[in-house]
Design a protein around this nucleic acid. Sequence first.
DNA 1: CGCGAGTGTGAACGCTTTGTTTCGTCCCCC
DNA 2: GGGGGACGAAACAAAGCGTTCACACTCGCG
Lengths: 217, 217
Amino acid sequence: MYVVLYPSSPSMALTSALLSVGYHPVPVGGLTEAVDKEPDGGWACAIVDLSSDAGAGMNFSAKAREELSIPSLLVVDRTLTDDLRDESGFDDFILTPIDSNELRVRLMRLGSGPGDVEPDESVLRFRDLELNTATYQATIGGSPTDLTYMEYELLRFLVENPNRVWSREQILSKVWGYDYFGGSRTVDVHIRRLRAKLGEERAGWITTVRSVGYRFG
Amino acid sequence: MYVVLYPSSPSMALTSALLSVGYHPVPVGGLTEAVDKEPDGGWACAIVDLSSDAGAGMNFSAKAREELSIPSLLVVDRTLTDDLRDESGFDDFILTPIDSNELRVRLMRLGSGPGDVEPDESVLRFRDLELNTATYQATIGGSPTDLTYMEYELLRFLVENPNRVWSREQILSKVWGYDYFGGSRTVDVHIRRLRAKLGEERAGWITTVRSVGYRFG
DNA sequence: CGCGAGTGTGAACGCTTTGTTTCGTCCCCC
DNA sequence: GGGGGACGAAACAAAGCGTTCACACTCGCG
C-alpha cells in the first residue's frame, strides 16, 4: 500500500509510524511529483503533514483529492486544530504525537471503508424511509414502494426540509415551481396520497399545523 | 445543539468537553430513550463512549445511525483502538484523553452533513416556556403542548412584548389584525384559554390589570 | 382512438377552533 | 353595606379548516 506523503521532508516519527502499520510512504514535494511517482495500483491515500507549512499543505490536500481522486489525511499539531474548523479539503485528520493504532484505523477507514467518497450519497434517509434520488426509487420500511413523480418530489422536499412548518403556498412554489398557479387544495390532496402510501404507521410523520401548513419529522 | 450521549453515566471529562465546545449532551441508556428525549431540532450527533462496555456501545452507535439517521462519534481508549479496524457502525472516533479542539472539529465535520438544518434560533423562551416559531410547537415545562393557532399567536405576542400592559384593543389589533372588527371580550376568552393551557402554576404570568388590560411577565 | 395512470379542482362533510353571549363573582368606590 | 362595572367561567353558535371523495383533464402508449 503506497501513500503519498507531503511535504517532501517528513518527520521521522510520521514515516516510521506509517511503516509500522504496513504502508509505504513516498515523500513528494508537489502534485506533479505525486503524479510522476504514482505506483501501479495508484495511491491509497495522501498524508499531509501541516506542521511546516499549513497553507501549502491544505492546498496539496485539496488538489490531491480533486485530481488524484484519493482521500487525504492531515497530520496536525494540537495547536493548529482550531484552524481546521472552516476547512474542507480533507477527509480526516490525526493529531501529533501520532498513535500508531489510531493511524492504522483512520487509514483503513479512508481506504476501504465506506468513506470511498460517495457510494450512494444520492440516497436520502429518514427513519426507515429511503429515497434514492438517482433512481427515483423509494423504500419504505424495507419494501420498495411506487411513488408517482409528484409524490416523490413532495416527499423529497419534506425529507430535505424537516422540522419546520411549510405553508401550502411555500410548498407549492418549492415543489411545483415558483410560477405555479394553482389552488392550495392541491397540496392537501398530495399530502393525503403520500400519507396513504407511507402507511398508517408513518402517516404521522407529516403533521398538519392547522391554519399554517404542514410539518415533516 | 443537542447530542445524545451513551451510556447514561458518562465521564465528567467527556461531558465537560462537550459543554465547553458548545454542545448540550443528553445522556441516555438506550435507543428508545434517545427517541423519547429527541429535541425539536433532532439530535445533531450521537456520542458513544466505549470505555465501559464496547459491545453495547457499538451496538448503540450502529442503531443510532440507522434509526435516528444521525452521525455517530465514538470515544475510545487508546488500548481499544485496534478493535475498531473491522467495525463499521460509526462515522468517526476520538481518543481519550479528549482534546477539546479536536472534539470541536470532528463534531463540526460530522454535523455539517446533509441532514443539517440552520442553527435555528427561532425559539422564543420565557422561564420554562418554549415557542418554536419555525415548527409552531410549544413546550411548557418541558412537555410539548398543543396550542391552537390563535392561542399560539397570542402567546407569542405576549412573550415578545412582556412587562407592559396591553389594552384589549391593542391586543386585538396586534394579534388579530388592525382591521379586525370584534368585541373585546374575545381577548378575555383567549387569555382564559391560554391560562388554562399554561397550567395553574404559570397562569399568573398573565396578569389582569383591571380596567386597563393584560400584562405578561 | 380508447385506455389507464397521474394529476388538479370543486363540493360535501365533519371536526376544531373561534367569537359571542349569558351568568355568576369579585372588587372598587361611594 | 350596597351598587355597578369589570372580569372569569361556561355554554353555545357559527365560521373556518382539513380531509375526503368524485370527477375532469392531460399525456403516453398500445
